[in-house]
Nucleic acid binder design. Structure first.
Lengths: 192, 192
DNA sequence: CGCCACTATGTCACAACTGACATAGTGGCG
DNA sequence: CGCCACTATGTCAGTTGTGACATAGTGGCG
């Protein structure tokens, strides 16, 4: 019934009451690593959660034509979240444009592909440094039962992911460098 | 103009002519790691590629009410693919249900979460073994310019991914085991 | 000869998601 | 006082993707 986005919202609200805008902000910054949504989608989903009785809200004065609405999880919502959390995740298809490009990369020139991977590597290293800095701020992992455990565990996953990605980029760059050096060039037919 | 799925199809067809069914099969088995699509979507996308002049087909006799259509990439399609391949990939949002569940895991019991991760670990280890077996079949990496280079590079990424995932699962299980041992249980209020 | 699995193409309703547009209050800067 | 950035909610058209339904030829097994 409730979509995954609905549970993502419940997971945010379980940490404390929030406006739709706050949820959208959370989806941009710390949660963006594993789930994202635009505010347009969030407002629509909040209507569904409201209809299902999983969230409630309190209208307060604030900016915008309609003031602000501070949402909170209801007892039913909390129960639904708890049940969903322990259900095995359904296999979502990975959709990775970079790997797809790599799969088709043989149609292009190695130098261009190499440049693309150099850029990707830089991006991954930057994000890795950012995550590691964030991890150091937390220090040692919070205990299970603390909401921050969720944040820390997700961050840990993110760090592992960036490391794996960076390593793969480096391997690709190595492979492509081999294709670019003279001994390899001489072995294939080229312009005289 | 052309969607990413369109390029995924072109990437498959660049390896040789295929029917829509063949493309769907390819999307289930080797490409599924980084892109998936149902046959319904593939047939629709092929119509768009046809209209764009990126693919052509040859009608042949075969099963089904309409016979079979063997598709191939045109010169324009080949050029479009070559251009797309070297464009920097746009950041696609990662949508990872397991990490989302982990983010919300503190609302549930550690034992249940631990079980979920044990199952995930088993799945990742199985897939890793499968990929590694496949990698051994190929042997040493094909040179750039060979279509099999794309397959090998993607497989290499898959192996790295499964290793990273398995490692993260193991870390989570360790963390949860700590939460489950008596010294930790004694420190929190529980039933007498 | 009937049944099933596989090959093969297609439609359709629906759900999920995106990007642009629309509206409006608050607080800070020059 | 005007302008801008930020907070805040919402609509809407359009694209992408899913799952079910529909149709039909071939080859193998019992």
């Amino acid at each position: 019934m409730t979509s995954t986005l609905g549970f993502a919202i419940l997971a945010v609200l379980a940490r404390g009451e929030r406006t739709g805008y706050d949820i959208a902000t959370a989806m941009r910054r710390p949660i963006a690593f594993f789930w994202t949504a635009r505010h347009s989608q969030i407002h629509a989903e909040l209507q569904k959660l409201l209809a299902a009785g999983f969230v409630g809200y309190e209208a307060r004065q604030g900016p915008g034509p309609q003031g602000k609405k501070v949402y909170h999880v209801t007892a039913e919502g909390s129960l639904a979240l708890r049940e969903w959390v322990t259900e095995p995740p359904r296999e979502r298809p990975e959709r990775d444009e970079l790997v797809l490009k790599t799969y088709a990369s043989w149609v292009a020139g190695p130098a261009e592909i190499r440049q693309m991977f150099a850029d990707q590597l830089a991006a991954h290293e930057a994000r890795l440094a950012e995550y590691e800095r964030e991890g150091e701020l937390i220090g040692k992992p919070p205990g299970f039962g603390d909401p921050r455990f969720g944040n820390y565990a997700a961050l840990r996953c993110g760090i592992g992911y960036e490391r794996h990605r960076a390593e793969w980029c480096r391997w690709m760059i190595d492979q492509l460098s081999e294709s670019l050096n003279p001994s390899w060039e001489a072995a294939k037919p080229s312009e005289p």
